[in-house]
Simulated assay, not measured.
Amino acid sequence: MVPSGADAAAREFERHRSVLFTLVYELLGSAADADDVVQETWLRRQRVTGPVEHERALLCRIATRVALNAMRAQARRREDYVGPWLPEPIAVSPDVLDDVVLAESVSQATLAVLETLSPEERAAFVLTEVFGSTAAEAGEALERSEASVRQLAHRARDRLREGRPHRRAGATPEVWHAFTSAIRAGDLAATTALLTGDSVLVSDGGGKVSSARRPVLGAENIARFLLGLATQHPDISIDLVPVNGEHALLVREDGAVSLVLFLETGDGGIRTVRIMRNPEKLGRLEKPVAIAR
């Protein structure tokens, strides 16, 4: 039996689901919101009539437009967010780390810089630089001219270079070993020495759990904060696992994930520490999420 057009479209949608999720996740920084947008993409795809020449391009165009609307609604919600907002972390399979472009694009450091862009700049960059869309294809999604898309993507690339001058800025295994050893030993001097003088720590508790509601600045202040956190939670287990295309420290208490910690390095040591403690954002860390580009 020849499959119907609806059946073929459904198969194509499932084939591209991980691509759509990754695209939207990079735009929104939220796995939960990305799931909603992907579902809405399928509902809108079902309303498309007539032949479709490039299914992936159509789905990405629909997903981008839905995501842009979601980004504007998301910005309004964040006005009431308690403390710093960080992207929702997601566990990924180890092979993601081998795809340099994909791993960098979903890293916490990159997502943090993308958050500083306008919705259109972010979409233009992600579509053209990560997913290989042409300026014309991205223009259809953004309802912009090719020249406008190129300008948006150029501004985004400049901002990425300013905000993240070091590619692959995740910590090496040696840095992670020194970092965890110093904190376990309660060694203030050793912890401080690993951090740059202008380092910053950002913690997202969302008002649900105790966390720093403002960034912690300076090596010694951060070291004291981390050692204090370790003292308050002595009965924990820690694992270094692939999260967001880089290695991160997964901390469990009583068998449940209580936080995930990321390190971003630069010249002279650790320049940024990001800690996710909001329990509403810790649900995608036990099982790898399928991502693709």
Rank of each mutant, 00 (worst) to 15 (best):
A212C: 12
E246G: 02
S203K: 06
L282I: 12
L188P: 13
G186S: 05
G207L: 02
K281S: 00
S181G: 09
V257R: 04
A182G: 11
G283R: 08
P173Y: 03
V257Q: 07
T180Q: 10
P279C: 07
A223W: 01
S211F: 12
A219W: 03
H233L: 08
E174Y: 08
E280G: 08
T196A: 04
L263V: 01
L285F: 00
V202H: 03
K287Y: 13
T265Q: 05
T196Y: 04
H177Q: 15
H177N: 13
L217F: 10
R184Y: 00
A256Y: 09
T265Y: 04
G206C: 12
V202G: 01
L226N: 01
L259K: 13
P288T: 05
L194H: 08
R214K: 13
D267K: 12
R213Y: 10
S258G: 14
V273H: 05
G228I: 03
G269K: 02
D235Y: 14
V260H: 08
A230L: 09
S203G: 06
R252I: 04
S211V: 09
F179S: 05
G205H: 10
H233K: 09
I183M: 13
E280C: 07
H177Y: 12
D239G: 07
D187M: 01
I236M: 12
S211P: 11
P173V: 06
K208N: 15
V241Y: 04
I270G: 04
L226C: 00
G218K: 11
R277S: 04
N278A: 00
A223C: 01
E246N: 03
